[in-house]
């Protein structure tokens, strides 16, 4: 199964949590903090911290609470 992250293709396994698939592809930095612009990655993986909130097919979603789907389009630009 393949995901498209900011135009680049990465591999993922069926049934996998999106945040795990991104980590496995070496994509630790998922967004920048809104005030200081420092890099952030998934922290709690249980829906609390919101650090893994990314755009999934155009909608802001937490990568830790979404299962991967083939052809998913992801943008790591952070919340506006």
């Amino acid at each position: 199964m393949q995901l498209i992250v900011d135009g680049r293709t990465i591999a993922a396994h069926d049934g996998e949590m999106l945040a795990a698939a991104l980590m496995a592809a070496g994509l630790w930095r998922l967004r920048t903090s809104p005030r200081k612009g420092t890099g952030r990655g998934a922290f709690c993986l249980m829906g609390v911290c919101q650090e893994c909130a990314i755009f999934v097919d155009g909608r802001l979603q937490q990568a830790c609470s979404v299962e991967v789907r083939d052809g998913m389009h992801l943008e790591l630009r952070g919340a506006p």
Partner: peptide, 13 residues
Amino acid sequence: TLPGVMGLAAATI
């Protein structure tokens, strides 16, 4: 706050 640093519970998940 660095990417790569996560909660202990996150690691168990």
